[in-house]
């Protein structure tokens, strides 16, 4: 038996190229895009609603891509908060990819937007392998998911920019020690930012916008 060297082009190279093309388009249109990942029920949609409210009141034009395997519930919520939104059903796919984001952006008035929130499908494994071309990536976990979330999904937390610990008001009620989550994250991702929020009661949203670098000060 013998070995043959193969012209081994990266199998996911196309994904990286598409993500880079998205990054260029966003930069040309001067849109700051944020990728939001996290499990189902962690509070991704509520956090985006709160951020839309803040940014819109500052005169910022916000777009959203609401990805879910089915339905348009999140999309309708974003629209009711004044965002220009597009619903993106991945059907049975467990993650968004750059190609789908590119198509979604075709249906948005990119030239009018300042900020674009891209809410990924609720999943903590697959989305990490598919960069979308955004300026920042954040992962949301809620205290109600337990204090072992970071150690159960270490790779996604090791390579994202911001950890948002949501439902911080419920930590005591569910017997979870937030410090354990935060110290796990700091150990795995020493340069990552941490923000604690309570989206339901509108707490921590300014800190989150600050961590995301979204200091929109357009005149309404």
């Amino acid at each position: 038996m013998h070995n043959i060297n193969v012209n081994g082009e990266d199998i996911l190279k196309r994904q990286l190229e598409l993500a880079e093309a998205n990054r260029r388009l966003l930069s040309e249109q001067q849109v700051t895009a944020i990728s939001i990942m996290g499990a189902i029920g962690s509070g991704k949609t509520s956090l985006i609603e709160r951020m839309i409210d803040r940014l819109t009141s500052r005169g910022c034009h916000v777009g959203t891509i609401a990805a879910d395997s089915a339905g348009d519930d999140d999309h309708q919520r974003f629209v009711s908060h004044g965002a220009v939104s597009i619903n993106l059903n991945t059907q049975d796919d467990c993650h968004l990819d750059a190609h789908r984001v590119d198509h979604a952006m075709d249906h948005l008035p990119m030239e009018l937007l300042d900020v674009l929130f891209i809410e990924n499908v609720g999943n903590l494994i697959c989305p990490a392998d598919f960069p979308l071309g955004t300026a920042k990536e954040m992962v949301v976990i809620s205290t109600t998911e337990g204090d072992d979330m970071v150690r159960k999904h270490p790779k996604i937390f090791a390579q994202t920019d911001i950890l948002v610990l949501n439902k911080i008001d419920l930590a005591d009620a569910v017997g979870v020690d937030p410090e354990r989550i935060l110290s796990d994250y700091a150990r795995i991702n020493p340069h990552g930012r941490i923000v604690c929020t309570d989206a339901r009661h509108d707490k921590g949203i300014d800190e989150l916008l600050d961590a995301l670098g979204l200091q929109c000060t357009n005149t309404p």
Binding site: M1, H2, N3, I4, N5, V6, G8, D10
Partner: peptide
């Protein structure tokens, strides 16, 4: 990365 580096081949001589 994620790429195929090489193939192992068995020929009639093998």
């Amino acid at each position: 990365e994620l790429y195929v580096d090489r193939l192992t081949v068995r020929t009639p001589m093998d």
